[in-house]
């Protein structure tokens, strides 16, 4: 029994650390770990995952807010979309077949992986040339003053930026909410991509702000699981403790890394996720079984 707790705890530390580095909640690591390694039913795994996603978000978010990398205003603005998406996600989930959604998500994640890979060297060039600062705030971004500055430790300088395309960005961010409502994840991958590739927010500010938003998105889904009685507190406790520790460590390391490294980790993770989602969709909808990666 003791070994089970320690095992859960260690897996959770890994998920929390990794999640904080790339701005995700770590649910995509916890759900497969709990079902494949710990043999828990998928619903219990998802419920435990969504609660521990809140834990990683709190630990990571706090560290980034203290380091002043988070753009709280941008986060609040996009939370309208992510919580709204979580609400719509729960509704669509009832009406639409799961495999269709898995395939759509898989395709979206692959697209974002490619976008992230293509821009992997662009990030520091854009910071150097002042391109993020030179962006013009447009439309709603101007009204809501979605601009910001953070200190980049790896580059040893302050980075200023202005948000662009706020409406397009929030539409994409709402998909992250849909994912949370449907699949029990934080949707950080999609939030980061929405900010970094669509809204011209530097990678590190995107990661920090994504972390900040995940807690609220995940709490919305967690309340539902909690009301429905799907949460096993004996599993949640060691997992949440572990992810909190891991996320605190990860968020300290993140600002010291070069964004090229973060982007590569992000790219590999999305390729893996995109594959798993498409494999799941094909197996559910058409009985085609692709070989598993894990």
């Amino acid at each position: 029994m003791l070994t089970e707790f320690i095992f859960l705890f260690l897996v959770a530390i890994f998920a929390g650390f990794f999640g904080a580095l790339v701005g995700i909640g770590g649910g995509v690591i916890i759900v497969p770990a709990l079902t494949l390694l710990f043999h828990l039913p998928i619903h219990m795994a998802i419920a435990a995952s969504i609660v521990s996603v809140i834990a990683t978000s709190i630990a990571g978010a706090r560290s980034y807010v203290d380091q002043q990398i988070t753009n709280v205003r941008l986060g609040m603005f996009l939370e309208i979309s992510t919580t709204g998406g979580a609400l719509i996600g729960a509704l669509i989930g009832v009406l639409m077949h799961g495999y269709v959604l898995s395939l759509i998500f898989g395709a979206l994640i692959f697209y974002m992986a490619i976008m992230s890979y293509r821009s992997r060297n662009k990030e520091e060039k854009m910071i150097d040339s002042g391109a993020y600062d030179a962006m013009q705030l447009d439309g709603v971004a101007k009204k809501l003053q979605l601009e910001g500055t953070y200190h980049d430790v790896a580059l040893g300088r302050d980075v200023k930026y202005n948000a662009t395309k706020p409406i397009a960005g929030s539409l994409v961010a709402s998909l992250a909410g849909v994912g949370s409502g449907l699949l029990g994840i934080g949707g950080g991958v999609i939030k980061v991509a929405a900010m970094n590739t669509m809204m011209s927010i530097p990678m590190k500010a995107s990661v920090a702000t994504s972390k900040f938003m995940i807690g609220v998105t995940a709490a919305t889904s967690a309340v539902v699981y909690f009301i429905a009685g799907g949460i096993n507190v004996f599993v949640v406790a060691p997992v949440a403790l572990g992810t909190m520790l891991g996320a605190t460590g990860g968020s300290i390391v993140m600002n010291k890394l070069h964004s090229k490294v973060i982007k590569m980790i992000f790219f590999l993770l999305m390729i893996y996720l995109g594959y798993e989602m498409i494999a799941k969709g094909l197996s559910m909808g058409y009985n085609i079984n692709l070989p598993g990666l894990m």
């Binding site: 809140i54 807690g215 709490a219």
Partner: peptide, 10 residues
């Protein structure tokens, strides 16, 4: 602990 955790972001 679980209640506290869920209510923190809220």
């Amino acid at each position: 602990g679980t209640i506290t955790l869920i209510l923190t972001p809220v």
